[in-house]
Structures are given as C-alpha cells and as structure tokens.
Amino acid sequence: MKLTLKVWRQQNSQEKGRFETYQVSDVSKDMSFLEVFDVLNERLINEGKDPIAFDHDCREGICGMCSMYINGRAHGPWDETTTCQLHMRAYNDGDTIVVEPWRAAAFPVIKDLTVDRTAFDRIIQAGGYISVNTGNAVDANAIPIDKHDADAAFAAAACIGCGACVAACKNSSAMLFTSAKVSQLALLPQGHPERKQRALNMVAQMDKEGFGSCTNTGACEAECPKGISLTNIARLNREVLVAGLSSE
C-alpha cells in the first residue's frame, strides 16, 4: 500500500506546531500502525531529518503510553484498540491519514505527538489508593467479595491511563479516568473507609489540573480502548453527592 501521512510536528512546548505531509510506500497489511512510524522514522534519519517523536512502550495495548489521534479519533478507527494494536488492515491503498497528539490544556505537548500526562498521576495521588501499609493485611480470603462487585471493580480497574477519554472529549474532561478509579475502590469493601474523601479530593484535583467538566456526551466511552463504561461516571457523581451531603 501507498499512504499519505499528515503528521503534527512541534519542536517543543513553546514553539508553534504545523502539519507535515509524508508519503510512505510498501506498507503491508500485517504492519502495526506504529511500525509504519518506525519505517518512516528510519527513512527520516537516513535523510538527515528529524524523526517524529511519539510515545510507545509495551506495544501490546496495556501500558497506556501510545497516544495518537488518528483521523479525528483517539487511537484510530478500531473499537477498543490502542494505537499500537491498530494494524494496517484497517486502511486501503491511497488513503490519507491525519495524525495529531492528544489535545488538551492539561496535556501540554512535549514534542510532536508526545504529551505530558503527569496530571493523571497527580489525580491518583489525591486519593486513588487504599491506605494500607505493607504487612498490615489480613488473610486474603477473610474478605469475601460478591463476584458481581469483584467483576465490576475489575472492569473499572482495566483503565490503562492513556488519556484517550480526555482527547476524545470536547471539554477535555478527565471524568472517565477519575471515575474508573473511584468506582473500582468504591465497589470493594477495602475501599470503603476512605470513599468520601477519595471522591471529593480526586475531583478537586481533576479541576485544579485544568480538565473540563463532563456534559455526558459519551465520547470518552466510545473511544476508550479498554471499554470503560460511562456508568462509572454516574457512580462517581453519586459518590461525590453522598460525600458532599454527609460531610461535616
């Protein structure tokens, strides 16, 4: 296949960016989307040009590092798929593909397609944990957990923290990310002692980082590579409401 790539290039966070157009040929259907960038970068290096910087690491769809906004969709056309798992079978000869970084005020561009997502770490620091020091635990089977709750907690915990939800949202809201962690811990008995403060503090941090508000468009759920459900946002809203009403 021959493809035309229009890629966002930006030297660093201060300078203005622009789209550059590249023609790539000999693309096989078996290649992953990132392998096309590997091949293109190899060519740019050989031509003495600056290769395209993009985040990636595990390339098996679990680390959450890859983050390309492809033809107007976070992680491209396949549902529940990260950029690294997108394969070129998704495209036809002659296609033009526009590739941008995540765009959100809370995710400043570092270079080209690489953005700074440390805001997510700070949201977790605000309460995305259970306060249990190493060595303090009771026997694991001393806390039986209803299988449905355990499964629901797992489904929420499957979030990989990639930020596609923020990129897909017209408000750049981080509600899906934040609610996934709040939900996981609210569904488990271990998370109950801290649930009120957790919900309030994580939402406060989310606002402080400059993420927008949620207007329930559902774009986040539609683009989430791990299928994190919108019901988590409903649960977060309930947690915040209950915490607010019952606070002292």
């Binding site: 249990v132 303090n136 694991a140 806390i143 299988k147 355990a150 797992f154 811990l185 488990l188 998370g191």
Partner: peptide, 16 residues
C-alpha cells in the same frame, strides 16, 4: 494478602 488489601481485583468464585 497485601494485594487484596490494596484493592487488587483478583478473579473470584461465586462464593466470593
């Protein structure tokens, strides 16, 4: 034990 206390959602049987 430690991981369960942290909220790691391991697979469970119907008995919990």
């Amino acid at each position: 034990d430690q991981c369960v206390a942290q909220g790691v959602p391991f697979a469970r049987e119907y008995g919990g």
